[in-house]
């Protein structure tokens, strides 16, 4: 099979592209968590901010990704920087929205119990709200990651690198095995990333909330 041959003949190329791909997605997702989770928490505290911020995050989601990359080239030029910014903005919505929803859905009785026993607002957040909304927040991170690994293939269009390079080159050269050599590892990455995050979620989850196996 020509796909196997292609992989056999270019192992280091594939390996480097996978690493590059992970680097792009990883940077985008980590920044989206670092910014998105606190943002999601803040908008549960300042309800007036919730709607506008969620609306803005949704707008990013509606712009077709290839157009979004293209639109940013005149501003940021080509390269990884542009790619990561777009990927970050795509990842933001599921993370902000799930953090917001997860925390809002913590039962008011739980918060009342915490406050009534003398927890400060920070302690309520750390000891009650975050542990109880963890699975919803993690679901957002997983969705963002899986989608992002797919979207990262398009980042090659703006010179971001990653497995998308093989796909674009394969399309231009009419070489299906090259397209597949980019697409199959990307799909596998998405599946593995989801599994690994599922495991992370399970380990982070307090025992009393874990679903019985």
């Amino acid at each position: 099979m020509s796909l196997l041959n292609f992989l056999k003949n270019n192992p280091s190329l594939i390996f480097n592209l996978i690493l590059e791909h992970l680097q792009l997605t990883g940077t985008a997702i980590l920044s989206a968590i670092v910014i998105g989770v606190p943002l999601g928490i803040i908008i549960t505290r300042y309800k007036k901010l919730a709607d506008p911020i969620l609306a803005i995050a949704s707008i990013f989601q509606t712009i077709p990704s290839i157009a979004f990359f293209g639109l940013l080239i005149p501003i940021l030029g080509i390269g990884k920087r542009t790619a990561i910014l777009v990927l970050f903005l795509y990842a933001l919505l599921p993370i902000v929205k799930n953090t917001y929803t997860g925390i809002k859905e913590v039962s008011p009785f739980m918060i009342d119990a915490g406050r009534g026993m003398g927890m400060t607002n920070m302690q309520i957040l750390r000891m009650v709200e975050l542990p109880q909304s963890l699975s919803v927040i993690m679901a957002g991170v997983r969705i963002a990651t899986v989608i992002n690994i797919g979207t990262t293939t398009i980042a090659a269009y703006v010179g971001g690198g990653g497995l998308g390079e093989l796909i674009f080159r394969g399309i231009q050269m009419y070489r299906n095995e090259m397209i597949l050599a980019g697409a199959v590892p990307a799909a596998l990455l998405a599946i593995f990333a989801d599994k690994i995050l599922g495991y992370v979620e399970y380990r982070l989850m307090p025992k009393g909330l874990r679903k019985k196996a």
Partner: peptide, 22 residues
């Protein structure tokens, strides 16, 4: 108020236990 509450016991309906804590 935080100090005050720590020195007053508080029991609400059964949902008041934290499910994520043993």
């Amino acid at each position: 108020p935080v100090e005050l509450r720590r020195n007053i016991g508080y029991v609400i309906q059964q949902i008041g236990l934290f499910p994520h804590m043993n």
